[in-house]
């Protein structure tokens, strides 16, 4: 059996591997090469060395977007995870009726695409701003920032909640029972027993929200498009604008170099996070 598996493994892997190569590995390395070039279309690239990378760090708009993204990521990671965890706790209680309905309802926003969500929330938020007499989204970077956070919370809490629910349900009854017999109250059980046991879920959820926040593009494009005057432009949108909104060969390579820097940044940050939370996980 095992021998046969080994023998035919390459054949089974082939379709996925081919798709992965065509859709990911080849463009990734092509992109890497293009970041050292000047080009208008990708087939006529001229190698120029590290010039693009030098310009990335001189580009103030890139740094501005970086700090905006960081500010967004911190707040949205905390809000999404805390709220999702609380919801998961509430919806795993045995005495609550209709938990499945609630779980479905909370999960549903995740099924709608980012662009659609962005435009729906743009209308909603603009209506509210108009009623309270504040400047609309296109003129209001504070509203844009909080709008993005509300939008992301609304979309992602349900998804994270499902992962937390799975984690909480995996906590063995024997442990909670033992804690109850030892006289721990609900709060103590939660903090000392459940929380360490769901640490793997927390690792995954924080990882997901962190990378999602850094890579956010659709929602940003649809909700604010970076207005006013690039004040709500996150990293991915900044790269897109560098690449597409600018005419001339010099900008394409710069956008590409930004994309490579961005990719490294996301990998490094998420690896640090992964190490940090992973080390807190306990073995049963």
């Amino acid at each position: 059996m095992e021998k046969a598996l080994k023998k035919y493994a390459p054949i089974f892997v082939l379709p996925t591997f081919a798709a992965f190569s065509i859709g990911f590995i080849v463009p990734f390395f092509q992109g890497l090469y293009l970041s050292f070039c000047q080009f208008t279309t990708t087939k006529n690239a001229k190698f120029i060395g590290l010039g693009n990378y030098a310009r990335v760090f001189q580009d103030e708009s890139f740094l501005d977007s970086f700090w905006f993204t960081v500010a967004f990521a911190i707040v949205s990671i905390i809000l999404i995870n805390v709220i999702a965890f609380v919801l998961a706790l509430v919806l795993t209680r045995n005495n609550l009726k209709g938990t499945n309905v609630f779980r479905t309802v909370f999960f549903m926003p995740n099924l709608i695409g980012g662009i659609v969500l962005g435009y729906i929330w743009q209308i909603l938020i603009n209506c509210i701003l108009s009623i309270v007499g504040e400047p609309l989204l296109a003129l209001n970077s504070t509203a844009g920032y909080w709008g993005l956070i509300i939008l992301m919370c609304w979309q992602q809490i349900g998804y994270m909640m499902i992962i937390y629910i799975a984690g909480i349900q995996n906590v063995p009854d024997t442990l909670t029972e033992a804690a109850a017999i030892d006289g721990a109250n609900a709060w103590q059980t939660m903090l000392k027993v459940k929380l360490p046991m769901v640490m793997p879920s927390i690792t995954i959820c924080v990882f997901l929200t962190l990378t999602n926040s850094f890579k956010l593009f659709d929602q940003n494009l649809a909700l604010t498009a970076g207005e006013p005057a690039h004040a709500t432009e996150m990293l991915a949108l900044n790269i897109y604008q560098t690449f597409y909104a600018r005419a001339g060969a010099a900008w394409k390579g710069l956008g590409q170099a930004k994309a490579v820097v961005f990719c490294l940044l996301v990998i490094v940050i998420s690896l640090i996070q992964f190490k940090a939370t992973h080390s807190k996980e306990v073995q049963q």
Partner: peptide, 24 residues
Amino acid sequence: LSLSLVATLLAGCGGSGSTATTST
């Protein structure tokens, strides 16, 4: 399950590096 989740994520995360050439 969690491995496969992380794997898809890593793929997605790496992919963003080449956003400008491919997906967009």
